[in-house]
């Protein structure tokens, strides 16, 4: 099936890309409801988080169970920078990304010597530590009351462009869409480069990677830090988007949700991560909507339906919906087709 998707996409590459982009850009025009716009924003935020996890898990092969920690650090960083220091949105986002990057390095340096499941548990512990610090450092984080009145996104004080208010859902939608597009482009570039191949080779065989001259530890640290930075970006945006952060948002369940998105969508696939995120954001909404037709039971059974879908998924396609599917494969497919055509022309 995956092959069919690639072939179909490759044949109509321009059309597919245009339709896809047009849909993303026109979404707030097509859907006016406050609710649908916010659901879309949630999809995009989780796409960022799922992409971040995919970089470290799907490409580098390190399981991280504490994504919510970096998400939370990014959110608190932006909240504090904007409310306490009065820094405006864009520089605050940049700083939040740098801060989470540093946290990523700090966590990676001592812990990456540990392997496999043990490391996963360490990240889980880190997530709890961060949550408890957020909850108890009252003088800084305001403890359980959270930080309120975080200003909405703006661009160096400009609050609306072309009549588009950045404090309204449609404005916020475009802000996160641009952040996501930039992230996807950067990730796509780096994953198809020397560094990206180094990460993939570490997942494939760390000993062979070392023998090929790759500084495995250094690349792992960078994968970790970049993963943290992207999660921090998502967190920073989230804080500005809701205008309020507290520690309950960034708990263990959040980490597992992000993990499910990445695995379900497809390890080692950028489009996979986005599809996984959309799937898990929309699923409860769809179930709620179904509940209005076939009774409340379906909403109550939600968690069980989640579990069933995951089990079925892992049984039949353990690397996710689009596991291993890379945008580059489309490019290669077209290249091969062109070469074949040229060959046929030569022969006849």
């Amino acid at each position: 099936m995956l092959k069919k998707i690639i072939n179909g996409w490759a044949k109509h590459q321009v059309a597919v890309t245009l339709v896809f982009l047009a849909f993303l850009i026109l979404y707030p025009v097509l859907f006016h409801s406050y609710y649908l716009r916010n659901v879309a924003i949630q999809c995009l935020i989780y796409s960022l988080l799922s992409l971040a996890l995919n970089l470290i898990m799907g490409y580098t092969g390190i399981v991280v169970l504490g994504m919510a920690a970096f998400y939370g650090i990014g959110a608190y960083a932006l909240a504090l920078l904007t409310t306490k220091l009065g820094i405006s949105f864009l520089p605050a986002v940049a700083l939040a990304v740098v801060i989470t990057f540093c946290f990523g390095v700090l966590l990676a340096l001592p812990t990456l010597r540990i392997q496999g499941n043990y490391l996963a548990i360490v990240t889980l512990g880190f997530c709890e530590i961060i949550r408890i610090v957020e909850l108890n450092w009252v003088s800084l984080t305001n403890g359980p009351f959270g930080i309120k009145q975080i200003p909405a996104p703006d661009i160096f004080g400009i609050k609306s462009i072309f009549g588009l208010k950045l404090s309204k859902p449609e404005g916020k939608y475009y802000v996160v869409l641009i952040l996501l597009v930039i992230t996807v482009v950067i990730l796509h570039n780096v994953l198809n480069s020397r560094s990206g191949r180094a990460w993939k080779s570490i997942k494939g065989d760390p000993i062979a990677a070392r023998a090929m001259g790759i500084n495995v530890f250094r690349y792992k640290v960078f994968a970790f830090a970049i993963c943290a930075a992207i999660a921090g970006l998502a967190g920073a945006y989230y804080a500005a988007y809701t205008g309020y952060v507290d520690s309950t948002t960034f708990n263990y369940n959040q980490s597992i949700l992000i993990l499910s998105m990445t695995i379900m969508g497809g390890l080692g696939s950028i489009p996979g991560s986005i599809i996984g995120a959309i799937f898990f954001v929309i699923l409860p909404e769809v179930l709620r909507w179904l509940g209005t037709f076939c009774g409340e039971w379906i909403v109550e059974w939600r968690q069980i339906i989640y579990g069933l879908i995951l089990v079925i998924m892992i049984m039949f396609k353990s690397d996710g919906i689009l596991g291993g599917f890379d945008l580059r494969q489309i490019h290669l497919y077209n290249k091969l087709v062109k070469e074949k055509e040229a060959e046929e022309k030569q022969n006849g």
Binding site: R197, K200, I207, G268
Partner: peptide, 20 residues
């Protein structure tokens, strides 16, 4: 010990890591 998650050409490209 090949990188099974990568194409043949990418395996060779990893071999060029130190050349770049």
């Amino acid at each position: 010990r090949l990188f099974n998650n990568m194409m043949a050409i990418d395996n060779v490209l990893v071999g060029l890591h130190t050349a770049t």
